[in-house]
Write a protein that binds this DNA or RNA. Structure first.
Lengths: 238, 238
DNA sequence: ATATGATTTAAACGAACGTTTGAACCACGC
DNA sequence: GCGTGGTTCAAACGTTCGTTTAAATCATAT
């Protein structure tokens, strides 16, 4: 009819099925026959269109992370342009970084909650080629946001900022992945399972105060003393 | 000699190898031949001693979680006994819950950082039989700590407490699993990779302030209004 | 209509998987 | 000595894995 919407579109159907199945069962736990069967295409289609199962996984991430990286850099550029050289507020930096992520959950054409869950799940998988895939796509974005946080929090040791950046990522990916062990125990039904487009907004309202509270928490006592920028006195028991 | 310490101890060698390999490559990504080869035992030993690969995974967790659950309940019992009916401090509850966990990282006979990483990794895997395994072992412990937090924070809606409990678990498991995507990007070398017994103590000093800051963060605006216990006025802008 | 390049198809490939088998091995009580 | 129960062993089981092949089909331009 219109154009290319009604034709088989084998590539995208494979990517959609793989995205969902990798999220549900992991990379090793999903067979090519399950993927192609679910997508309604022939088994050989994956190797024809992508070359291998590993290349398929890379493409599943690439098509989503391309948008995410662009969006995150765009938000940071906009904020820094309006700030006129002044450091940004930490809350604004986090809102941009995680807001761009959570926006994907509200837009089905960007992967929706399925890709968000897959992403949260994969971040803890130490498989080599997965990490290298992330490193290449993520390097610039993470570096830009790290430097923005360094400027926003000049009194906090950089090592501590990086640590808390990690911790915030962990809390967020755990909240996103949803299906966690605690949920199987907890009788109270949280809206974690919500798949609708409002799930990501609920998530943001819930999680952002927690992340900001963690970021602003008092520093640990010992403070690594390798790049103490304020408080030149060594403190009593250090 | 003494008893059964010097003999091959096939069972434990399998469990140790499986623990490490499941941590490194995941359950589906680790073959029985790799496990038995690494443990220096015959391939058939796993099925002889445990019955199946799945039962082996269950036993890998069971022998560690048995100690963890006992320790967590013990610490809570002690605190509640000394409190004499008074609610506990939230920081004390978290210190007990996560302190028991992190103590495993300092004691090689309790699994050390290997098991901690495996645990952090597994919590985000939605495989059914893994979750059911956790549900059975975790139910009582999580319920006890949840109720302690409810008493410690009577002004916070219970749903919000459960949410933040989830988020703290996510941040901690992410910090523990260590090998994450951000690390591949960050040039600054954090002490995440430290495997020594002091790694868990560093982790505690780093992470606990963050978790407490998140737990005490201001509530989100909308506050679910299903069980508002204080502040009966709807408030304009909070 | 026909030739051409892109795509889909059914079938098979060898390798690796978890599991099972039955004989061999060992320690120990008789 | 011999038998016995627990354990280890090499070998093979049938299945599923990711990948490849070559023919069949489709779309399109001349």
């Amino acid at each position: 009819m219109s154009e290319a919407r009604t034709l088989p579109d084998t590539r995208e159907r494979i990517l959609d099925a793989a995205e969902r199945l990798f999220m549900e069962s992991g990379y090793e736990g999903t067979s090519m026959r399950t993927i192609t069967g679910d997508a309604g295409v022939n088994l050989a289609a994956v190797n024809y269109h992508f070359g291998s199962k590993e290349a398929l996984l890379r493409e599943v991430f690439r098509r989503r992370l391309a948008w995410l990286n662009r969006e995150r850099l765009h938000r940071l550029d906009e904020m820094e342009a309006h700030a006129g050289g002044e450091p940004l507020k930490p809350s604004a930096i986090l809102s941009a970084f995680f807001g761009a992520l959570l926006h994907m959950g509200t837009d089905e054409s960007l992967g929706g909650m399925t890709f968000l869950r897959l992403l949260g799940r994969t971040l803890t998988e130490p498989a080599d080629f997965i990490r290298t895939c992330f490193a290449g796509e993520y390097a610039e974005v993470v570096d830009r946001y790290k430097r923005a946080l360094f400027r926003a929090l000049p009194d906090v040791p950089r090592e501590e900022i990086i640590w808390r950046f990690h911790l915030m990522l962990g809390a967020m990916s755990y909240a996103i992945s949803g299906t966690d062990a605690l949920q199987a125990v907890t009788d109270c039904e949280l809206d974690l399972n919500n798949d609708g487009p409002q799930a990501a907004e609920h998530l943001a309202a819930r999680v952002m105060p927690f992340l900001l509270g963690g970021l602003r928490a008092p520093l640990p006592q010992f403070v690594t003393n390798q790049e103490q920028q304020r408080k030149p006195e060594p403190s009593k028991a250090a």
